[in-house]
Amino acid sequence: MTSLLLRVKSKMSIFAHRKARGILDGEYGSVFRGRSLDFDDLRAYVPGDEVRDIDWKASARHGSPLIKRYVAVRRQTLMLVADTGRNMAAESRDGETKKDIAVMVLGVMGYLAHRHGDVVGLVCGDANGSRTLPAKAGEAHLERLLQEVDSSTGLGSGPSRLEEQLHHVAHTVKGRKLLFVVTDELAASPGLEQLLRRLRAQHEVLWLTIRDAELSGATHSPDAFSVADAAPLLGRIAASPAVATAYETATAERDAGRHAMLRRVGISEGHVANSHDVMTELFALLERHRRAG
């Protein structure tokens, strides 16, 4: 059996030199900084402190700004939340299988957690149900998680429905965790937004979208079909300027709706179309999340 984690670590070495990996390590470590920690005491504010750490009520009583100090929890929990429905067996925008990109993304995040001494778990599934692999430490466990995602995702999988996995998290994952959600280009909905608000109130949430293939790709493959229902994608129709324009408009509206929904609930989103850009996109996502915090 090919080691997926070894493949992830090899790509990390190829696409990011040591300094860049160190910066990415630092961004991961900053996600929990000042949050998910045990309160210790208060001290006077000094220039450079995070404004979000000011205890405003205590400051008002004291007459000058006071900062909350925390005792770091030694080990945090990263929960990987992955869609393993058949949508993820489709091609991405740059031609790779979305499943392969997902394994790379999940592997990089899991390995960062491992390097920080954190434990990593997995929630994955499709519209037919979800399953949890409990959070544990170690590279062997991380390899098992990646193998689970890889082996569970295919054209024979059930339909993709990320809401099922998110509901599963809401009902089964206790305590404050870092949720890292990897899925394809979902559409916003009132039900999904309400669910995300519930999750965001309890957990840190990061969201990474894997880009769908372009409709124009159907013009180059006479055997192209939709993985959702096996319907053929007719190249002649896909090549029609009117169809292409309508498709682009619908895609832009869907993406704008999702972006707006995630902004409203306070979740940072990243996008990736190939495994080569995973390190860069993860760094940008972690940076956005830190700044938004």
Rank of each mutant, 00 (worst) to 15 (best):
D126G: 06
G125P: 08
L66I: 07
G270K: 03
L42V: 05
E248V: 09
R161Y: 11
D25Y: 15
E204D: 12
V169P: 00
I54G: 00
A127I: 06
V149Y: 02
D150K: 05
L142P: 02
L262S: 01
E143F: 11
L286N: 04
N87L: 06
A292C: 08
I54F: 06
Q194S: 11
R264K: 11
S152E: 07
R131T: 15
I237S: 02
D25E: 11
A44V: 11
K174C: 02
G121Y: 15
D184R: 10
Q165A: 13
G63A: 04
S59E: 05
L78E: 01
R18Y: 12
L206Y: 13
T84W: 10
V46M: 04
R75E: 09
Q194K: 14
R288M: 05
D277V: 01
L142T: 05
E27H: 14
M279P: 05
E281Y: 12
V31N: 01
E248T: 14
D40W: 15
V71H: 09
G217M: 09
E96D: 04
L80Y: 14
S275G: 05
A238S: 09
D38L: 09
E253P: 01
A213V: 00
P190W: 14
E27Q: 14
Q165D: 08
L155C: 05
S275P: 03
K98L: 01
T77Y: 03
S130R: 10
L195Y: 15
D53G: 00
R69Y: 10
S10Q: 10
T153Q: 00
P159Q: 08
S130K: 12
V272R: 01
G129V: 04
S221I: 02
L42N: 00
K11C: 00
L80W: 12
P47W: 10
P222G: 05
R211T: 11
H271A: 00
S59P: 07
S160Y: 08
N128S: 15
S240Y: 14
G110K: 03
K136T: 04
H276L: 14
D94H: 14
F180T: 05
A140F: 15
R33I: 07
V51P: 02
G95A: 05
L262F: 14
